[in-house]
Design a protein around this nucleic acid. Structure first.
Length: 267
DNA sequence: GTTGAGCGTT
C-alpha cells in the first residue's frame, strides 16, 4: 500500500492549535527576539537516538544540541526529542523541511519548541507532590513505577561527554591534555531530589524522593562523608560486644545487672 | 557554570 502516497502537505497545524495564541510571544533564551532555535520533533521511534537525528537535521545548519527525554522511572524514550540550532533561520528551515519527513519509517512532526523545559525540581512535583502526586498517598499504595530512577547505564549523565557529545572540536589547535586540567569526573549519582520540603518538618522523609535512600546498585556511597571516603571503615566494629546483642534475647541476661527490672512486663 | 526528569509519548 505504500509507494505512491504523495502526501503533498502533511497534516500540519499542530504547532498552533490553541496552545499558544501568540506564536512569537516570547522565546526567552535569546534576548534577541528572533525566532526560536529549538525544535520539537515528535513521533520519534522509541529506538531513535540523538545521533540519528543529527544527520538529517544537521543538513540545515549547525545543530547545537539534541536531546531526547525519556521517562525517569522506566527510562523508556518518550517518542519525541528536541533539536536546537544555533541559527533560528536554520531551525525554521529544518522545521519546514523535516516536518512530515519519514525517519525510520515514521513520519516526523517537527514544531517549534516552547523552550519551557522543566527542571528536575519541577518534575518532582509533577509526581512527587504536585496535584497528581497527591494520588500517591505514600501510606496508601506506592506507584506502579519502580522506585529506581531508571537504570541509567552510567552514561548520559555526564553532560556533553556520554549523553551525546557533538564533535565540537576547536580547530584552534590540539589542546594539550596538560594544558587543561581535566575536570574531575564527579560521577555524581544524580540522586533526584535531595532537598526536603519544609512541610516535612525536617523529619527524615525520604519517601518523597523517587529513589530510596537505599542504594540499589553498588551501594558504595552510603553515608560516609566524602572526606573520609578512603578511610578504612571498620564495619564489624559493632561485634566486639557480643553480650550486648544478646540483650534482645528471650532470656534476660541482664537479670544480674538490673534486679529492678522484671522480665514480666505486666500490662 | 546554567539547567540532560525539556513541552507535544502508546
Amino acid at each position: 500500500m505504500r509507494g505512491r502516497s504523495y502526501s503533498p502537505s502533511p497534516p500540519r497545524g499542530y504547532g498552533r492549535r490553541g496552545r499558544s495564541p501568540s506564536p512569537r510571544g516570547r522565546h526567552s533564551g535569546h534576548g534577541r527576539g528572533d525566532g526560536p532555535t529549538s525544535l520539537l520533533v515528535r513521533n520519534l521511534r522509541h529506538d531513535c537516538r540523538p545521533e540519528d537525528l543529527r544527520r538529517p537535521f544537521g543538513q540545515f545548519g549547525t545543530v547545537k544540541d539534541i536531546y531526547l527525554p525519556r521517562d525517569y522511572y522506566t527510562g523508556q524514550p518518550r517518542g519525541f526529542g528536541f533539536v536546537q540550532y544555533m541559527d533560528p533561520a536554520d531551525a525554521a528551515e529544518a522545521k519546514y523541511q523535516m516536518d512530515g519527513q519519514i525517519l525510520h519509517g515514521r513520519e516526523l512532526t517537527v514544531v517549534f519548541a516552547e523552550e519551557n523545559r522543566k527542571k528536575p525540581t519541577e518534575m518532582r512535583e509533577r509526581e512527587g507532590g504536585g496535584s497528581r502526586g497527591r494520588v500517591y498517598d505514600r501510606r496508601r499504595s506506592p506507584p506502579r513505577y519502580s522506585r529506581s530512577p531508571a537504570p541509567r547505564y552510567g552514561r548520559s549523565t555526564s553532560h556533553s561527554r556520554d549523553y551525546y557529545s557533538p564533535p565540537k572540536r576547536r580547530y584552534s589547535r590540539s589542546v594539550s591534555p596538560r594544558e587543561k586540567r581535566y575536570s574531575r569526573e564527579r560521577s555524581f549519582s544524580h540522586s533526584p531530589v535531595r532537598e526536603r520540603s519544609p512541610l516535612d518538618n525536617g523529619s527524615r522523609s525520604r519517601s518523597r524522593s523517587p529513589v530510596r535512600d537505599r542504594l540499589p546498585y553498588g551501594s558504595r556511597s552510603r553515608s560516609q562523608s566524602p572526606g573520609r571516603a578512603h578511610s578504612p571503615v571498620r564495619t564489624r566494629s559493632r561485634n566486639r560486644n557480643p553480650s550486648r546483642s544478646r540483650s534482645r534475647s528471650p532470656y534476660p541476661v541482664d537479670y544480674s545487672r538490673e534486679p529492678g527490672k522484671d522480665l514480666t512486663p505486666s500490662p
